[in-house]
Computed example of a mutant assay.
Amino acid sequence: MLVNVKKSSVINAPIERVWEKIRDFNSLPDWYPSVIDSHIENGEPSNKIGCIRSFNREDGLTIREQLQRIDDQEHICTYSLLEPDKPMEDYVCTIRLLQITDGNRTYIEWLADFKCLPEEEPKLGENLEKVFQVGFDALKKIFSS
């Protein structure tokens, strides 16, 4: 079963500042809680399509993701999860920013597409929404100071 999860929020900062914070594919430790370190494998640039980031979380899990798309005009970053945990397959995520001119704020959405068994969808979708919200809350905190 193909599943689509979408979560969105508004960050009280100009799009250029938010994009600068998240566009570096290796910057997760700088803004996402629970990520303790990250590196791009094989010493490749963090904006090279196909590069792989490997990062460690506080819970001891190591995750590897591959950059699929980075678009500075459209403010879009797409990546896939390598070696996803079962029961997910073909996991692809996109973070997209849009300028909100009223107040010079940023609309941010985080989308995930993946395949899973129908009975797994509710739990996996709920977990991803929580993951995305943690990222939004962290960005809001960074830009509120």
Score class of each variant (00 low, 15 high):
91 Y>F: 11
73 Q>T: 04
84 P>Q: 03
100 I>G: 09
50 G>T: 01
103 G>N: 08
97 L>V: 09
63 I>G: 01
18 V>C: 03
36 I>A: 10
45 P>V: 08
45 P>R: 01
106 T>L: 04
43 G>P: 00
120 E>P: 07
128 L>F: 10
18 V>K: 06
105 R>A: 08
87 P>I: 05
8 S>Y: 07
58 E>Y: 09
137 D>V: 10
46 S>A: 15
32 Y>V: 15
7 K>T: 09
113 D>V: 12
129 E>Y: 09
143 F>K: 05
50 G>L: 01
61 L>G: 10
141 K>N: 13
116 C>D: 04
69 R>Q: 13
31 W>V: 04
79 Y>S: 04
98 L>C: 11
38 S>Y: 05
123 K>V: 12
86 K>T: 11
38 S>I: 02
73 Q>A: 14
54 S>H: 05
56 N>F: 09
106 T>S: 02
34 S>Q: 14
135 G>A: 11
89 E>N: 14
105 R>Y: 08
65 E>R: 00
43 G>N: 01
16 E>L: 13
100 I>E: 12
80 S>Q: 05
10 V>W: 02
92 V>I: 13
65 E>A: 00
4 N>D: 14
124 L>M: 09
70 I>S: 02
75 H>E: 04
91 Y>W: 05
95 I>H: 15
33 P>K: 01
23 R>D: 08
130 K>G: 10
7 K>M: 04
103 G>F: 08
31 W>Q: 10
124 L>I: 13
73 Q>M: 11
130 K>C: 13
42 N>A: 13
121 E>F: 06
23 R>Y: 14
66 Q>C: 00
34 S>H: 12
57 R>W: 03
119 E>Y: 08
30 D>A: 15
129 E>D: 12
21 K>H: 08
50 G>I: 00
54 S>P: 05
58 E>K: 13
10 V>L: 07
100 I>S: 09
141 K>G: 10
54 S>Y: 12
88 M>G: 10
54 S>R: 06
142 I>K: 06
102 D>G: 08
141 K>A: 15
61 L>Y: 12
104 N>E: 10
42 N>F: 11
61 L>R: 15
142 I>L: 14
